[in-house]
């Protein structure tokens, strides 16, 4: 039961959506882009969110496509997590998506919603960060393509009204050896204590984390430790811990101390698993 009224729009084109947003905003009202709706509905119900209108992106063809085109995988922002995992096109992203919330919810959650919502974990970003994916943003001047790693800094840096329409990943990234580990407090269906995604490209490990801080991240420093030459795994991990320790999240899912322990463990396993695929 959402305790307030709002308007519902389902535009057919990106332009229509963008203009609508602008128009509603111009009337002094709050519009919100709407993907799967889970977060918007649950937060509204709990009085943590208020809007005057929702703009459902599921009627826009670009937002709903998932296809390979010219050696690029294109995923629309309104594609659901289960569509991604069922498609098998991007195994690491599929595996990551299949561990967010539960399967039935994955049938509604969209990748755009996961990235643009308020949830701090945004785990679908991890594969995108390490696979150098690009975001297609629709704004005042039409579409532009930006590196996810550039536009995501703690949150997706969009201008008001801008729409994340698609995510593009070069197909060579889809076949690199990868590791995905999600650790939780005690249950499988839970927020992460720590989620790690990593790939190995030309003997170079790329790695990103969620649950360690209040946003997902990929860190140049951590990757330089991991790929450092003439260092034992233990040394690498100790350096990472030393670098990261003071910034580790401390909440009801787990204390920062315990999260650090889990990080250490998970890094050990991740490195071992990636070594095997040398």
């Amino acid at each position: 039961m959402i305790p307030f009224k709002f308007e519902y729009y389902k535009p057919d084109t990106l332009k229509e959506a963008f203009d609508l947003y602008d128009y509603i905003k111009g009337q002094g009202k709050t519009p919100l882009y709407y993907g799967g709706g889970s977060e918007i509905i649950t937060m509204s119900r709990a009085n943590n969110l208020h809007m005057d209108a929702v703009i459902d992106l599921k009627g826009i063809p670009e937002c709903c496509r998932i296809e390979m085109l010219d050696n690029k995988l294109i995923i629309g922002s309104a594609v659901t997590l289960s569509q991604i995992s069922e498609s098998g096109l991007f195994p690491l992203l599929g595996q990551t998506a299949a561990r967010i919330a539960d399967h039935t919810v994955q049938c509604r959650l969209t990748i755009g919603g996961n990235i643009c919502g308020t949830i701090i974990y945004k785990e679908t970003l991890l594969p995108l960060m390490i696979c150098e994916s690009r975001a297609v943003i629709y704004g005042k001047n039409g579409k532009r393509e930006v590196q996810i790693n550039q536009i995501f800094d703690k949150k997706l840096r969009l201008m008001p009204g801008e729409i994340l329409s698609e995510i593009i990943t070069d197909s060579n990234y889809l076949s690199f050896p990868y590791v995905h580990v999600k650790k939780t407090k005690s249950d499988k269906i839970a927020y992460p204590l720590l989620t790690v995604a990593a790939i190995k490209k030309d003997n170079n490990i790329k790695i990103a984390f969620s649950g360690l801080e209040n946003h997902p991240f990929r860190s140049r420093e951590i990757e330089s430790f991991i790929n450092g030459e003439n260092m034992s795994d233990d040394d690498k991990i100790n350096r990472i811990i030393g670098f990261q320790q003071s910034k580790v999240l401390d909440d009801a899912e787990g204390s920062s101390c315990y999260r650090t322990f889990v990080l250490k463990n998970t890094l050990e396993n991740t490195l071992k698993m990636l070594e095997k695929v040398k």
Binding site: K185, D187, K188, I189, Y191, A252
Partner: peptide, 16 residues
Amino acid sequence: MKSTSFRTYKMMRYGE
């Protein structure tokens, strides 16, 4: 209280 929903109040699920 911090565990006020089934997101934070955890119970056994199928297969566990």
